[in-house]
Design a protein around this nucleic acid. Sequence first.
DNA 1: CACTCATTTCACAAACTTGTGAAGTTAATG
DNA 2: CATTAACTTCACAAGTTTGTGAAATGAGTG
Lengths: 172, 172
Amino acid sequence: MSAEPSPQRDPEAVSKFIERFASTLVNSGVPRMPARVFAAVLAADSGRLTAAELADILQVSPAAVSGAVRYLAQVSMVDREREPGSRRDHVVVRDDAWYEMLMRRDQALKQWEDSLRDGVDALGEHTPGGARVAETLAFLEFVHTELPSMLTKWREHREKLRAARGFITQPP
Amino acid sequence: MSAEPSPQRDPEAVSKFIERFASTLVNSGVPRMPARVFAAVLAADSGRLTAAELADILQVSPAAVSGAVRYLAQVSMVDREREPGSRRDHVVVRDDAWYEMLMRRDQALKQWEDSLRDGVDALGEHTPGGARVAETLAFLEFVHTELPSMLTKWREHREKLRAARGFITQPP
DNA sequence: CACTCATTTCACAAACTTGTGAAGTTAATG
DNA sequence: CATTAACTTCACAAGTTTGTGAAATGAGTG
């Protein structure tokens, strides 16, 4: 059942990495427990862990893992996979987790834009305040148009990297 | 001293905008009070408010304003300006507040990259886990290289917008 | 169809955040 | 140089958030 641990895999160092990377995620606004779960799965050689394994690795209750996985699944950063004929859920980091994370931000941008448009109306387009709000709106609209092309560019870039590493390319 | 209120400026609507925009900022991880202060200054026709004015507009204690302004100044989204011969601080939204906000994120990216590099070392570059972490690292490095050119592009775009609105262009 | 294992849900306690009132600090002014 | 205005700091209370243990749910297995 358990994967043969690679000889160079030092559990202590791995744990340290999980906690450190989780902390950087926390600094960027991700709740702590989801951040730790994400880091743990990312670092797992199998790329997939059960809730029980996570509880063990992170030294927390199964309940905490359950909540964290629900959060991560909600924001499309992990998937839950269950093999037929088993009751173990495996948590898997989505191949496009970062893409999802950015698209999510893109959604948030739309919300910002909506409230800024209201602001321009409320203040009057030709008042100094209104103009300032309008410029903020223009910035967000700009980012909004640029993001998709940036993500496309990344996917191309990634294929090149994978090819260089000897993978057979399999576009998403 | 107080600016002539524009006829179309409806205090109620303005306040509603402030609260709504602040809430979208909060949804994206900005603490509430800084978010409200930022929105209020952004919307102010004068573009600058004293702590006392902010306390009045937002219906909070001067202490709360003080803390919020400290936060915003720290992350370079506002400046404190004091006229010689006065003890009033004016809070001003920085012209490049959004630029600063993104650059700040760019700094955070570096932190992420550092901990991911550690992760690749800890896991071994040729293990499946190490490879997964390495790809995450590659994504962040990619974003890291793309951001500056995007911001440059924005500044050009903004100059065009301003010129179209009849401003004399004055590059930062 | 009772049993067991893996996960989820729920009520609650602990820890952390936030904003307040009051006292303190700094700087202009008469 | 005492006074006052404007902001800041600090200790604390109120309100949230987070993770826990215990009970509940659901899904295979003998």
